[in-house]
Write a protein that binds this DNA or RNA. Sequence first.
DNA 1: CGGAATCCTACGTGATACTG
DNA 2: CAGTATCACGTAGGATTCCG
Lengths: 135, 135
Amino acid sequence: MSPGHTGVTTAGLFDSREECGIRDVLDRLGDKWSVQVVVELSRGVRRFRELQRALPGGISQRMLTLTVRRLERDGMVSRTVHPTVPPRVDYELTETGRSLAHLIRTLTDWSLRHHDEITDHRVHWDAANPGSGIR
Amino acid sequence: MSPGHTGVTTAGLFDSREECGIRDVLDRLGDKWSVQVVVELSRGVRRFRELQRALPGGISQRMLTLTVRRLERDGMVSRTVHPTVPPRVDYELTETGRSLAHLIRTLTDWSLRHHDEITDHRVHWDAANPGSGIR
DNA sequence: CGGAATCCTACGTGATACTG
DNA sequence: CAGTATCACGTAGGATTCCG
């Protein structure tokens, strides 16, 4: 092992080309709102408007509907309609959804640990590569 | 605790509204190629064309350039230019990049564990919600 | 070989209006 | 309240061409 190496190897980390089914999960993590919705629902049951108001940045009705529908379709969120007037709809994480919340926690932990490092590196890289257009 | 509960709680999993710096990382994980590039580089040093041919699905030159540049900007990948003719450029994971590879391994593990479950749930949901347009 | 520059298209997202 | 329906827009990504 080379001098100064801290011991993080990745040699046999990924067996074969097994990235096939992973796209689905990464697409959800990558879209603009799913992670925030799961995080908010990890704090408890939420109604539609409740959820909307809780999300920082201000999600539109349309996008919140799309986001919770997709999460429901994947089995991460349960949707309970109360036949009252005015209507009341409760959203809650399923067992799988709670597992996803823990995965997201792992992600945020990693992000927090490396955030400053990444930001600093970007500043230096941008200074060394003026007008590259990369973002 | 309710009967039948398997013990996965998420009550105090996320302290406050700490999703601020996480967007950067999620954007990289969410785009189409970054994860595949990191996975391929976790197997060893790669040249530009080498990397391009290794990625299933066929990445364009443009997108490979953008992807490795962004990873380089974030400090995940090092880029070494050999001043020969024809030119030779080597890409390699940095220490932080190898840490990211391990995080991605955690993601793929979770995906593989829940892939069948998610797929099955989608089939049933699509059958129960015909013509919803949700994907 | 390893790009950069340009053009083009599809899709995710936002804003607004309407409904049961 | 909890949506649905439409339109409008920006940008990620693909295809192509040219360069050192």
